[in-house]
Design a protein around this nucleic acid. Structure first.
Lengths: 249, 249
DNA sequence: TCTATTTGTGCAGGTTTTTGCAGTTATTTA
DNA sequence: TAAATAACTGCAAAAACCTGCACAAATAGA
């Protein structure tokens, strides 16, 4: 096998699988690993792939993964925020969790909206405070420094006494079988109570979190009324949720 | 699985869920926790995430910074803050109002201090949250956008149930005859209750506010235990307060 | 065609990277 | 404060890498 031919094959494999292993290639093409290494070296110098210890990665792979961390899925969250904001009507009582998606939503609320927002999330409260016509209610209790939210018996008791029209949850993981799950026990407790205290439950999440799991169970799919993602409602991945009776926006 | 690939996966999970646990990741990817730790270490050095005990956090989640209003007469307030911080001992329950003076104090607290701070002031809570050893309790209720503090019957009832060791009040006006006064009725109510709920009342103010008046009465001079200003205790303007039995720092 | 030169390949060795493990030290939490 | 968990340190083995070299194949020029 000629050198050019070999390198073309390697490139093909890289573009196909986004990654190749030197050891595998050497076995496949029946040349020494040194040769493969030299090929990868050359291709890397030509910018055709990215050489790493043990093999190489496709350039597109790297693009996808290292997309700027600061703006990670920001646009998606903006879209979600706008869909969510459209659900809120004047005079409503809205209970919300914390999380970046919810905070984006807070920013996207139309200035004319008059409603009451209730939350224990400090970053969320800060956002709500910026709005001219929103009444803000803070749920008090011990402050969790990690989650930047108030948690504890007091907070739970308080939420129990609320009858909200809407509940917006930024969720960490949702699965058609297991429902929504969370990785923090106390936040999970809070979200459970919030669901109980609201007439209508709206889950907001970017589509990547769909069909993923976390250790702690919050609620079943049947407890959710509306699911909002950045995708159009007819996206295939959302079909099962629609079939399960959830309104998908 | 290649190292780069693994790190990309970790980064993806962090950005997706805002938080990852070393133990979970090591199980998922089937490598030792040491390897995960090393990956997190590297990613953290590259600024792609924030490493914490047990796992890592996404950067975007944690950088909720509240750019407080540029504080008026900052240096004086710094001096006050240091005097005030010296009064707090480990294990104390401290009730505080809001106000720029109090926020400066929050910043001046020594990192080793272990105490519980209770407040309804959102900027103050944000500062307390920065501290490693302080337990923070938020008093919940309707949020006053002007004062950035929670006010209402709920908050008052909550404070009434507290028995604090110390109460720090940033005050707006103090006068030897009329005591401390305020220009916001609701904040005045809160401060009154805070005074009732604390063993020791500390008033912090810059000297400009001494011998001034505001419309709403909070408490009399006799209700104050300690007065802190940026001036040395033997300043002439403070003499009447010392004579009235107040400890002046 | 025949030599000289370049190019490609594999190998021996020594070096670096990566990874897991054991033992110790910090940190967290009950 | 003590037990549990996580982090750090140093080490060792495996894998991958690099360097220089030998040799074969391809190429070029006379």
């Amino acid at each position: 096998m000629l050198k050019k031919e070999r390198q073309a094959y390697i490139l093909h494999q890289v573009n196909l699988h986004n990654k190749v292993l030197s050891s595998l290639l050497s076995h496949e093409i029946r040349v020494s690993e040194d040769t493969i290494r030299r090929d990868l070296q050359e291709l890397s110098e030509e910018g055709k792939l990215i050489k790493v210890h043990g093999g190489a990665l496709s350039h597109s792979f790297n693009d996808v993964i290292y997309a700027g961390p600061s703006v990670y899925s920001q646009d998606q969250k903006r879209i979600i925020a706008e869909k969510a904001a459209a659900l809120i009507e004047n005079g409503m009582f809205v209970l919300t969790s914390g999380g970046t998606t919810i905070i984006e939503m807070a920013r996207a609320l139309p200035p004319s909206l008059r409603a009451t927002f209730i939350s224990g999330s400090i970053p969320a409260i800060l956002e709500y405070m910026q709005h001219p016509n929103i009444e803000v209610i803070m749920i008090g209790d011990r402050v969790s420094k990690n989650a930047k939210i108030t948690i504890g018996a007091e907070a739970i008791a308080k939420i129990k006494n609320i009858n909200a029209d809407l509940c917006f949850l930024g969720i960490n993981a949702i699965d058609i079988k297991r429902g929504t799950t969370e990785n923090d026990w106390e936040i999970a407790q809070l979200k459970k109570i919030m669901i109980d205290s609201s007439r209508k439950v709206v889950c907001c999440t970017i589509s990547e979190k769909i069909n993923t799991l976390q250790p702690i169970h919050i609620c079943n799919i049947s407890d959710i009324d509306v699911l909002i993602t950045e995708l159009p409602p007819d996206a295939p991945i959302l079909k099962p949720y629609i079939d399960a009776g959830i309104q998908v926006l």
